[in-house]
Write a protein that binds this DNA or RNA. Structure first.
Lengths: 136, 136
DNA sequence: GCTTACTCTATTAAGTCGATAGGATAATAA
DNA sequence: TTATTATCCTATCGACTTAATAGAGTAAGC
C-alpha cells in the first residue's frame, strides 16, 4: 500500500509544479486545495525540503517552492524520499540493501528472483517519469 | 514492503513445487527446510488451501500438496491471495477497486496516473511468471 | 483406540501510521 | 524595535496491522 505520506507528498509536489513562477506557496493553501490535513502536510513538506526537493521561506509571503524545474525531478528520487525503498524486499534493494537473515543463498531464492523483476519494472516506470509528467 | 506472510508463502509453494510427485509434505518439514516459524506457516498454508492452490491430508502420512501443476499457477493469483491487491492504491486496483475519498477527479489525479503505470508493470511481471518459473 | 497431523480461534507483543498539539525560530513590515 | 506571519521541530496519541504463539478440536491411518 502507498502511504498517505507519499500520496499527499505527490499531490503537493504536483500542485507546486503547476504554479506559474516559483513564488512560495503557504502550507495552508496547498492543504486546502488538495484536501490534506494541514499539520500532517507540514511534516511531509519538511522532509521534502531536507532532501533538497523543496525550498522554503519563513515569515510573511513565505511558504514552499520547487528548487528545480519539474522536469529535472525524477520520480525515483521523490518515491525514495517519501516512500522509502522501491524494492519490496531489502535483499533486492539498490539503495537500501540488506541480507535476509533466514535465506542461505540469494541466487537460488525464489522470492529474490521474483522481487528482482518487480523492482526492475517499477524502477523503469519511475525513471521514465519526472514531476513534470504528473502535471495534468 | 512484502509481508513475511507472502515471503514465507512463496517459499513454501516453491518448496512444494520442487518435490517429486504430489506426495503430501508435513508443515514441520517445510518449516524446517525454509527456516519458517511452524505455527505461522500453518496459518499461511491454511489460507492457500482455502483459496484452492493447495490440498491437504490429515493424519499419518498427511500434509500439504499442490493441487495443480506449478506451471498452471500464475503469480497473479498467488500474490493476490497472500499479499492482497497488486495495486498500491485502491483507485487503480482491478480486483479491489475503491474510490479515493479525498480525490475529486481520478482522471486528473497525478497519483492515480503514476500508480496506474506501476500497477501495470507489476502485473506484467506476475502474468509472465508461474510457480514453475520460481523453482531453481 | 492410539498416534499423527491438519483445523481453527483467540491472544499478544511490537511496531507503524496518520494525525494533532504547542512552542521555538526566522523573516517581513510598520 | 515591535508586531505579525509562517515555517521549524519535538513530542505524543490512538488505531491498526503484523508476526508469532498457545491450545483445544477434528480427521485419517495403523
Amino acid at each position: 500500500m502507498l502511504s498517505k505520506k507519499t500520496k499527499y507528498g505527490l499531490k503537493a509536489l504536483t500542485f507546486l509544479a503547476a504554479q506559474e513562477g516559483r513564488q512560495p506557496v503557504q502550507i495552508s493553501e496547498i492543504a486546502k486545495q488538495e484536501n490534506i490535513s494541514r499539520k500532517f502536510l507540514e511534516s511531509i513538506l519538511l522532509t521534502l525540503r531536507k532532501s533538497g526537493v523543496l525550498g522554503s521561506k519563513k515569515g510573511k509571503g513565505g511558504g514552499y517552492y520547487l528548487i528545480k524545474d519539474p522536469k529535472d525531478i525524477p520520480m525515483t528520487l521523490v518515491m525514495r524520499v517519501l516512500e522509502g525503498p522501491i524494492a519490496m524486499v531489502p535483499c533486492v534493494s539498490l539503495n537500501f540493501y540488506e541480507k535476509c537473515a533466514d535465506c542461505p543463498d540469494e541466487a537460488s531464492c525464489s522470492v529474490h528472483m521474483l522481487m528482482l523483476q518487480v523492482r526492475d519494472s517499477a524502477l523503469e516506470v519511475y525513471k521514465n517519469n519526472t514531476l513534470a509528467d504528473l502535471v495534468p
